[in-house]
Design a binder for these strands. Sequence first.
DNA 1: CGCATATCAGATGAACTGAAATAT
DNA 2: CATATTTCAGTTTATCTGATATGC
Lengths: 150, 150
Amino acid sequence: MTDGQAQAGTPPLTIYLIKQLELAVRSFLDEALRPFGLTTFQYTALTVLGRREGGLSSAQLARRSFVRPQTMNEMVHALEARGLIERVHEPGNRRVMLATLTPGGRELLDACEPHVQELERLLLRDMPAGQRALFRRSLENGIASLTHAR
Amino acid sequence: MTDGQAQAGTPPLTIYLIKQLELAVRSFLDEALRPFGLTTFQYTALTVLGRREGGLSSAQLARRSFVRPQTMNEMVHALEARGLIERVHEPGNRRVMLATLTPGGRELLDACEPHVQELERLLLRDMPAGQRALFRRSLENGIASLTHAR
DNA sequence: CGCATATCAGATGAACTGAAATAT
DNA sequence: CATATTTCAGTTTATCTGATATGC
């Protein structure tokens, strides 16, 4: 039995399309990152930290990824045990631990970069160049709408 | 400590934006569907079946959601045990079981509909109406690029 | 005291690997 | 025989709930 396409009775919701696209992206990304021993979730956390200067607390990372602080805490500990991140007490608040990339973490991230870029290219392959910037703005628009709603 | 925004040193990749948006959507959807005893993943499968006439096999659903056939099989059995779907042998192939919504499954799906529509509205709240159709086409474009690449 | 952060412990669910049976 | 679907069994990982300690 072969796979056909969905019926066009009612057009699928935008949130459904987002979910389908993310499923596809994650499938590719998981495969690309497996040789590096990273899940997509871990990779995303590392890139967030890599984009930051001063580091982020586990609780901040949790909010950003919509998971419980306990869940993120476990992941942070795992990344720290592997030497990919290090954590230091925030100067003004000794309770808070700020996580930053170690040189090894940065190195691993850089090693993943070409594969991730390859996926980015594949995703945008058939999209007109003039449409890409607007696509990104639309995604950011949606993120902002949902993030500020809670 | 307050949450700031990401540094603008290098612009985030499109695949990263997709992931962030999907995280936000899933977070809202999980919350909205919890009272109905459905996960986002189960809800998605039900909507796919609801859009179909003749039903889909577990293996087809698995490919569509990028999970192993075993994983989807378990979910299909759970939905069948709850009476939300029913499965019949495909006429031409007695090995294949085609799943379709039961009236109860359709009813549950309809009950979820308003909450899902509410999320759709929230997502698109601040997006110019003229931009929405293009946004959907871009998402579909990306899905097609990645799906046909395997 | 109220609140946020970090963390431990136990329970639960989701997905995986491996293998086997059935049908075309 | 080769391939696809379904399914069982066992394992691993992830995430959750609940509770506790610490610092502001």
